[in-house]
């Protein structure tokens, strides 16, 4: 995730990031219109590649077989539709059901892509800073858990190592029974050590005045003019998309009859708004890259 350090959208306020992903994932789940799905795959895929570089291609190519499998399976489960392609096990295999399968698989791929971007952009520190004021106890809990997990895994490895050095513990050639038994001993030792530490941490927090007054939280992120602009764009575009959706401009039903709303007239507006919305992070990334290139070439 080194590349995300240079991503312009990741540097924006977490609220902007969060709102964008809520919109992108929410729309991605609900809309099955083929044109919107293609827009979703293009938008999500481009941003995913910008974030992950060459590694991203591997993941995207890995989604292809999944897409194909989900597509061809649907007509086996769903025999509705009028255009029968052929009969399989005495059941009709219809074109409509196949297209429906492709749409469902498309929704799945769009969602995986946006979640991939979400994981790179909205890191745990951003999440807790976003919700620190709203749910203070839970955010603190989450921060502590996230800090303890690597700590405990390290300690578990130390315990395993210490046991190995005195000739105990399971290796690669151990039986499952030995592995399980050894795991139990390690887990037990780890629990003892961790609980011991928890009481000390808790008392230390109390001694420093935890719970005596309302906790304030330090905010490292500030909403800048740029963030407000982006937020305005996100909200406006989403509003247009939802309004057009309510108007039926992205309706697509596949079975029993195929109906896909044409992208003409007023329906174009919704589609353009959706595309513009999905391109926000990519556009920001490219804009920053160009600016950087220009300012560097001036030197």
């Amino acid at each position: 995730m080194n590349t995300s350090k240079y991503d312009a959208f990741s540097k924006r306020h977490p609220l902007v990031n969060f709102l964008f992903f809520i919109g992108a994932i929410g729309c991605g789940v609900v809309i099955q219109h083929p044109a919107y799905l293609i827009a979703g795959v293009m938008g999500g895929g481009t941003y995913y590649l910008l974030l992950n570089g060459k590694k991203g291609w591997k993941m995207i190519l890995g989604m292809l077989p999944m897409f194909v499998i989900l597509t061809v399976i649907n007509p086996l489960l769903n025999a509705y539709g009028v255009t029968v392609l052929f009969h399989l096990f005495g059941r009709p295999y219809t074109l409509e059901a196949l297209m429906y399968g492709a749409a469902i698989a498309g929704v799945f791929v769009v969602m995986l892509l946006w979640f991939g971007c979400y994981n790179a952009v909205l890191t745990s520190d951003k999440f807790t800073s976003l919700f620190g004021n709203l749910i203070p106890a839970l955010s603190l809990l989450l921060v502590m858990v996230l800090r303890m997990i690597p700590n405990f895994i390290r300690k578990a490895k130390q315990i395993i190592g210490a046991r190995k050095s005195i000739g105990k513990g399971a290796g690669d050639e151990s039986t499952t029974k030995e592995k399980v038994n050894d795991g139990m001993t390690v887990l037990s030792a780890l629990t003892d050590w961790a609980l011991e530490g928890s009481v000390i941490t808790g008392d230390s927090m109390r001694a420093r005045g935890y719970g005596t007054a309302k906790r304030t939280s330090f905010q490292i992120y500030r909403m800048t003019a740029m963030d407000w602009t982006l937020m305005g764009m996100i909200v406006t575009l989403l509003f247009v998309v939802i309004a057009c959706g309510a108007n039926g401009s992205m309706t697509a039903t596949f079975t029993p009859d195929l109906y896909i709303a044409p992208i003409t007239g007023l329906n174009t507006l919704g589609f353009i708004a959706y595309c513009a919305f999905l391109l926000i992070p990519t556009a920001l990334h490219i804009k920053e890259a160009i600016q950087w290139h220009i300012s560097r070439s001036k030197i």
Binding site: L141, I153, L187, T191, L195, S198, G202
Partner: peptide
């Protein structure tokens, strides 16, 4: 929640996750 309660819950959560590392199957 009091500090001790908070930390103990955090420890149980972290243990549950770290337990993934204890049994390599």
């Amino acid at each position: 929640p009091q500090a001790r309660e908070l930390v103990t819950i955090a420890v149980m959560c972290a243990l549950a996750v770290a337990a993934r590392a204890a049994i390599p199957i």
